[in-house]
């Protein structure tokens, strides 16, 4: 494990580089195939609206995977993430063809023992925050 960021170089409030992730239907189809989650609410508009959703919605796990890239791109070694948790508070609605955009910011919220830090993320789409208390515990160098 070799994080590129030193514990000594961060403070509570240190901001991670923010990122923006476009989400199109194609991304959801690929994610369905790779993850094995073929729930039709993630690719079939007719089915999604029949069960009361406004349109196809992204897999919560897809949004969770995108959001943590703000952390893994920061430290370079993804193994530096020792804990990661989110609540799925609001779906990311993905209309065709325009899709959706997920914006992710992060900052160091707490310095922990053993050169670890807690990073709190903020993950939003058009509808507002889509993940509740998304946070990661990260092992720094």
């Amino acid at each position: 494990m070799a994080a590129s960021i030193s514990y000594d170089d961060v403070e509570v409030g240190t901001e991670l580089p923010a990122q923006t992730f476009p989400v199109k239907r194609e991304n959801l189809v690929r994610y369905a195939g790779a993850s094995g989650d073929f729930n039709p609410i993630h690719w079939n508009q007719r089915f999604a609206t029949e069960v009361g959703l406004p349109d196809v919605i992204a897999h919560g796990m897809y949004t969770m995977a995108e959001a943590v890239r703000v952390v893994t791109d920061w430290v370079e070694d993804p193994a530096a993430v020792v804990e990661y948790s989110v609540k799925f508070t609001r779906p990311v609605v993905v209309p065709d063809p325009e899709g959706a955009v997920v914006e992710v910011t992060g900052k160091v919220a707490q310095k922990l023992d053993d050169r670890r830090v807690r990073v709190d993320l903020t993950v939003t789409s058009d509808a507002g925050k889509v993940l509740g208390v998304p946070r990661a515990v990260v092992q720094l160098a």
Partner: peptide
Amino acid sequence: DAIGDANPAYRDPEAARKLGHPDVIAPVT
């Protein structure tokens, strides 16, 4: 590829070894 994450630790065993891993590692989720 499905999550669009280009990190070489997921693809290149040599890059993963430079980080101290015996082989490529998997994304966090």
